Simulated assay, not measured.
Amino acid sequence: MNTALADAGLRKTLGDMGVNPAGGAPDRMAQAIREDIALHRKIIADTHLKIE
């Protein structure tokens, strides 16, 4: 990921899509994914969202 993000063209493309690209260590990425999962689980539970 860090290598890909070193490309200015890719960073611009991602930025144009509203993505805030950030590199870092694999354990930081894993932590970010865990945090996203926890957030989405809470949203689903709080809204009683059901898959049809």
Rank of each mutant, 00 (worst) to 15 (best):
M1A: 10
N2P: 02
N2C: 04
N2Y: 03
N2G: 12
A4Y: 08
A4V: 09
L5C: 06
A6Y: 02
A6G: 15
A8Q: 13
A8S: 11
G9W: 00
R11P: 04
K12C: 02
T13S: 10
T13W: 02
L14T: 04
L14N: 01
G15I: 09
G15Y: 05
D16P: 04
D16K: 11
D16C: 00
M17I: 06
G18F: 07
V19Y: 01
V19K: 01
V19T: 06
V19E: 01
V19S: 02
N20S: 11
N20G: 09
N20A: 14
P21N: 05
P21L: 03
A22F: 12
A22R: 15
G23S: 06
G23M: 08
G23I: 01
G24A: 01
G24W: 07
G24C: 08
G24L: 08
A25Q: 12
P26D: 09
P26H: 08
P26I: 03
D27V: 08
D27Q: 13
D27N: 07
R28T: 13
M29V: 06
M29G: 07
M29S: 04
A30R: 15
Q31E: 15
Q31G: 10
A32T: 01
A32E: 12
I33R: 13
I33M: 14
D36I: 10
I37M: 11
I37D: 10
I37K: 12
A38P: 04
A38W: 00
H40R: 13
H40N: 08
H40I: 06
H40T: 07
I44L: 13
I44M: 13
A45G: 13
A45K: 14
A45V: 05
H48F: 02
H48Y: 04
L49N: 00
L49D: 05
K50D: 05
K50Y: 10
I51K: 14
I51A: 14
E52D: 14
E52V: 01
E52H: 11
E52A: 10
